[in-house]
Nucleic acid binder design. Sequence first.
DNA 1: GCCTGTATGATGGTATACCATAAGACCGAA
DNA 2: TTCGGTCTTATGGTATACCATCATACAGGC
Lengths: 230, 230
Amino acid sequence: MIKNADPIAALRIETPPATLREMALERMRRAIISGVFEPGTRLVERTLCDQLGVSRSVIREVIRHLEAEGLVEMLAKQGPIVARLEWDDARQIYEIRAALESTAVADCARVADEKVKAELRQSLNELDRTSQQNSPLGILDATTSFYRTIFHAGGHTIAWDIVTRLNSRISRLRVMTLSTPNRTTSGPSQIREIFARIEKNEPEAAAAACRAHVKAAAAIAESIIGVDVT
Amino acid sequence: MIKNADPIAALRIETPPATLREMALERMRRAIISGVFEPGTRLVERTLCDQLGVSRSVIREVIRHLEAEGLVEMLAKQGPIVARLEWDDARQIYEIRAALESTAVADCARVADEKVKAELRQSLNELDRTSQQNSPLGILDATTSFYRTIFHAGGHTIAWDIVTRLNSRISRLRVMTLSTPNRTTSGPSQIREIFARIEKNEPEAAAAACRAHVKAAAAIAESIIGVDVT
DNA sequence: GCCTGTATGATGGTATACCATAAGACCGAA
DNA sequence: TTCGGTCTTATGGTATACCATCATACAGGC
């Protein structure tokens, strides 16, 4: 690391990112993603004020943010609700993920050095651990960190933002997908395949493996929710 | 069209989308995209209140939305500024566009019927007209409508949202790119190539043409702003 | 009994008031 | 002249007040 090349920068006092709004945003987002608020649930502003202990200004600004993220929908004359997810949207999201992730994986395979590979290996171990424990949330975290490493290694920070946002929109679906019995075993093996190709620096093969992985996830998702999930 | 199969639906009174916030959002977005507010410009809330004639609540919620869109950055303890665009970000955006647009183009080429092709042809005519007039903004509109048709024909509505949002972040760059002399001629010809492949329903060739088009745009953009645009 | 009109309460849209803080101007002393 | 301190003010963060509107419930007439 070359971090201490600039010791002066290290002196900077970190401003606590602790505006009420940011905290509320984080809580709300997690609440929606983790399913505390079901899709379609009305988000009554004054109620949220009580629940989060902040004023309506804060709540409303948070809702604007979540709206732009696609996690919240505004019904005219009725206010915000947790966005519903139609299968067609989910299908598209999986397609986009396939495109972005396979591109990132390929680039990662091109440039991956030992350091990156070590990080990936660590995520894989975490993945093994969590999938043996049959912990969907843990698997999700491990998978996330695996892909985060890949995207950042290839310099795809913006694509990573997009993927993160898309994933939050299908989070419930992902958890359900991960709970599928055969997924618990096939998922990790597919990810291992991606890593194997990256390790050998084979961009095309890695990308193909990645596309297969996403495609499999999409297929399982479709089989679970079939036509629509409200 | 089977529209009048349900004449009752036609009775529905369209709710005017006219909340102050939505109007303000639209104005602000256009102002930023069209360059009325330069990148880095501070967006002082009270000033905007006067300029738009609305209250701070509205302005702040609009800023939250634009922040989530990536058009506005928040500086801690300083407030919002118009997002700056680093070349690396622009580079990534062009890459993502290449991935999403080529996928959409390929799908469009697979399913395009006469109706879609007619729409595309119309956009192309518009493109010719505007590029002869040397009107960058007109060219942008025509190109946008060309791609919108493509994305919607293939059912890529979410990808279209993403691309739209990404494009707004590099809008200034796009206008500058379009003003380049050789771009004025090469751009339309590349788009015509894409259309020609779609017309013949050749997905692979269409996608390749699309990638070439985006790549060329990115190259010109890079040559213009080189290392960074603040 | 059902339909219609009305009243009331809940809710979102909008505006404004208050506060803490940080940046900049100003001033005085070494 | 320059450094340090203080004061002012601009600004964002937060809370609250007010209003228009919509949904629900209820009452009355056919």
